[in-house]
Amino acid sequence: MTRARLPLYAFLVLLFVGFLAPLAWALSGSFKPRGDIFGYPPELVPDPFTLDNYRTLLTEQPFGRWFLMSTVVAVVATTVSVFVCALAGYGFAKFRFAGKRLLFNVMFSSLSIPFAVILVPLFVILVKTGLGSPWFALIVPWVAPAFGIFMMQQYIVQSVPDSVLEAARIDGASEFGIFRTIVLPLLRPALGALAVWQFLQSYNSFLWPLVLVSDSSRYTLPLGLQTLFVSEQRQYDLVLAGSVLAVLPAVALFVLLRKQLLEGLSTGAVKG
């Protein structure tokens, strides 16, 4: 039995190394002096080991400000979008109304619109209407992802019993009151999953901030690191340290909440 499983485990271990070794290599590089990062033969354990990259980065670059910018934007966008998605998901899951099928199809088909299509016009519109400020433009257009609504709708169909809603209506509760006091608490696992996912999407987004943010005091992490990389003639030391630091919170968040996230993400697709 166990011997028959050997190839299976070998396959899984091979993948494990394949997926994580590149990350380990980056982590190791961030502790090497500039000259050793590309040294031959390659050494996984840095020797000499140095914290200079981190020290220089944190003292000479506005890393803290980039981090704050990215985090605040991601937290606000996440909070709003989770709420918007839960509202719409509930509307689709528990009501029957004229035009529902059309509205649902419109929502669902927006999954097939590539972002590149609206990149140029959205930029033009926001700048021309004076809404190009990062605080607005990095957040507001992104708080209603169709994927999140779809996920919420699927989850609500499966896990919010009609009888509970019915009872609350007989008790005279308002529709929004029912949503807030009964539905939202039942959705906690799905809300958590969606929140993690939205946070990561916003925290890691690159193309839109690249287009939108020109004021360097409003740079997000990916943008600040990219600019630093270019201005350092593509030298790896500082940027590598910065990227490792930037990625740590994202990975930590994912590892902590992975069960919720992975199960929540797949609810929608599986029920199909």
Binding site: L225, L253, V255
Partner: peptide
């Protein structure tokens, strides 16, 4: 859970680090 989690990690990594990693490789 360990396998599933490890395989998923690359998607939560910032694209900038992805580019650096593969630049190194």
């Amino acid at each position: 859970d360990l396998w599933r989690t490890a395989y998923f990690v690359p998607i939560v990594v910032s694209p900038i680090l992805v580019a650096l990693i593969f630049g190194l490789i």
